[in-house]
Nucleic acid binder design. Structure first.
Lengths: 193, 193
DNA sequence: GTCTATATCGCGATAGAC
DNA sequence: GTCTATCGCGATATAGAC
């Protein structure tokens, strides 16, 4: 399983640099130092390569998103979570740059993505709920306030990197920190103490 | 200038349906009921067509974003603004679906977009500032609070439609209303009265 | 598993008649 | 302004040898 993985590594680099449209299977094979035929031995087509990279992304999310279950989450945990997400999103930059378009052209992938995303958003809601329970957040009046607050944080965590790119800013530690700051600002009115 | 515009109308429809990668100049010409050669008489290439559609988007923004200058803006104005933006973003859906990728492959367009976007964000900051002045919002402690609050609203207004699409929800009045609600929720802690 | 060779296709773009 | 015809290219994908 060496070549198969190297194809993915190479494809990820090229996709991130030039976008999926500009990168052909020939380019990938060439950059990976193998023949076009060999690439097609390992993957049916470009779509399957993209799908495999999505699976890598999902795996990275699964690793990055597990919180200690034996203790209540803190605000620092949320911060770490969002920062980690920015890092992953940036690592698979091409996916988020072309996300809506990619999902529209592969409905099976779209279904899979929706499921993974829903789990992530659920997790976020649980964390916000736990923060309220543990007193980090003030008691929220309406029950759907938890959901709204989670939605807000989620939107930032999902699109902040895109926002940086669209506005011509570099996606570095500093830019990511501003995203974290914005999320903390959104939470501030609800913080205790 | 009849054909030239019909090419744009057709291209917009096809791009929104299938994405820029899947739509060739031949497809556009065919759907517009003209020959490929004729299309190239009016536009140098596909990139120029995409650029022209961006200009249409900018024009729509310019029209949709002017507020009455003779009186202070109200919260309802902001609501209207965001809702109008959702409508425009959805009308030029393909642009926001592929935004980062499109801008990366055309640096002149990127510069232009950044300038237009910066003006829009500035306008948003002014409105938030005016809301504070007129007492709709409570006095904000730090001077950069205005900017943070504007950033937050801007992020929602820019990416809410994408968020709907990514999560598999339809982009209809109801979905857009939930985006407006989220923005109002973000503003709520700072509202007077 | 990996290569070379090749078939097929359609895209982008231009030339030249009308 | 609009058409038809066409060239050149590169992309996807497969066949078959090693």
């Amino acid at each position: 399983m060496k070549t198969k993985d190297r194809i993915l590594d190479t494809a990820l680099t090229l996709f991130n640099q030039q976008g999926t449209a500009a990168v052909s299977t020939n380019h990938i094979a060439d950059a990976a130092g193998i023949s076009p035929g060999n690439l097609y031995y390992h993957y049916k087509n470009k779509e399957e390569i993209i799908g495999a990279l999505f699976e890598r992304l999902f795996a990275a999310w699964a690793v990055g998103f597990d919180l200690p279950t034996d203790q209540m989450p803190t605000l620092a945990d949320v911060e770490r979570l969002v920062r980690e997400n920015f890092r992953i999103v940036h690592q698979y930059a091409f996916i988020h740059r072309e996300l809506v378009a990619l999902l529209r052209s592969d409905s099976a992938l779209h279904d899979r993505f929706i499921a993974v995303r829903a789990r992530g958003l659920d997790g976020f809601r649980e964390i916000v709920g736990a923060l309220e329970m543990s007193g980090v957040l003030k008691p929220l009046a309406a029950p759907d306030e938890v959901a709204q607050l989670a939605n807000l944080c989620w939107l930032i965590s999902e699109f902040w990197v895109s926002s940086l790119e669209v506005s011509g800013q570099t996606v570095d530690d500093d830019g990511m920190q501003r995203g974290v700051d914005l999320m903390l600002y959104a939470l501030k009115p609800y913080l205790n103490g």
